[in-house]
Write a protein that binds this DNA or RNA. Structure first.
Length: 283
DNA sequence: ATTGGTTCCTGCTGGC
DNA sequence: TGCCAGCAGGAACCAA
């Protein structure tokens, strides 16, 4: 999916079109995505005005004028696409599961091939205690995320640092791609045990995570198979991947060398990890 | 309390 | 060319 940079890009695209607009129609075309849609989903949204679009980790937050908050998650393959009233509106596509229409005639479609995405409805008052949001760790681009808090979250964890960074309770918003990239730039082996990272490695890791995410957001995210912007455009950060999906290629830091390090793919907890063949592997 | 394995769903790719 | 196993950006759930 969509990891933090892709959700942030989606959030910004939606904000430009949705903030201040009233939802005139909501069409839930399937009863359930990953989870059943909340009871009265369309009814509770119809007629509400959108006050603000926000993001927490990989969750989209749509704040409404009656105190409700629509929580959206894009899962692995979900995307939001906006069609302006004055533009061409193509017929509904396969996997267009939810359609929102605004008072200016625009249409917002949630398309999700694998249906791992979901929506939920809560209220402003209950938002922080929502079961999906409450356990989340700090925002990696926020002030609360630093080497000290990361070290505390990793202390005593026997799991590899790769798996620990995918745990949204440690830091919220990273996924498989950006974890691989951040560990590469921090020069930390994904196989190293999480408990051995606090200290100098954590001090390298925090800025590496921040930089990778910031640059990815600036590039409009990464478009591999599914991700596209709300206007249909593509992100281009995939062109800047150092290791993700680059098995066998030369390490960008030593590509000019006679015998450059090469990128290797391993499997950790059932998922691909990309790392340098020369990276240390001791935990 | 952690940790690892499984599962939800569809589509694409690579090997035979 | 066709078939099918394996894999894909997430994360809740379950069992150990």
């Amino acid at each position: 999916m969509p990891e933090l940079p892709e959700v942030e890009t989606t959030c910004r695209g939606l904000a430009a079109r949705l903030e201040g607009r009233r939802l005139d129609a909501v069409d839930a075309r399937v009863p359930a995505l990953r989870f059943p849609l909340p009871d009265g989903f369309a009814r509770r949204l119809t007629g509400r005005r959108v006050i603000h679009l926000g993001r927490r980790a990989k969750y989209l937050l749509v704040h409404l004028d009656d105190g409700q908050v629509l929580i959206g998650h894009l899962g692995m393959s979900g995307r939001m696409r906006v069609f302006a009233a004055n533009g061409a509106v193509p017929p509904l596509a396969r996997h267009d599961h939810v359609v929102f229409r605004t008072d200016d005639g625009a249409e917002i479609r949630f398309n999700d091939v694998r249906r791992f995405g979901f929506f939920d409805l809560t209220t402003e008052d209950a938002l922080a205690q929502h079961p999906m949001l409450e356990p989340l760790g700090p925002e990696p681009l926020g002030n609360a995320f630093d080497a000290e808090t990361l070290a505390a979250a990793l202390a005593g964890k026997k799991t590899p640092i790769k798996a620990a960074l995918l745990d949204q309770r440690v830091v919220a918003g990273l996924g498989n791609i950006y974890v691989c990239e951040a560990l590469y730039w921090a020069d930390i082996s994904p196989r190293r045990s999480a408990s051995s990272v606090p200290g100098k490695r954590a001090e390298r890791l925090v800025p590496a995570i921040r930089r990778v995410l910031s640059e990815a957001i600036a590039a409009g995210g990464s478009s591999l198979r599914d991700f596209a912007h709300t206007d249909g455009g593509l992100g281009y950060f995939q062109a800047s991947f150092a290791v993700y999906g680059r098995e066998g290629e030369a390490c960008p830091r030593c590509a000019e060398a006679r015998h450059p390090c090469r990128v290797r793919r391993i499997v950790q907890s059932g998922r691909s990890t990309f790392l340098l063949c020369s990276a240390p592997t001791i935990g």
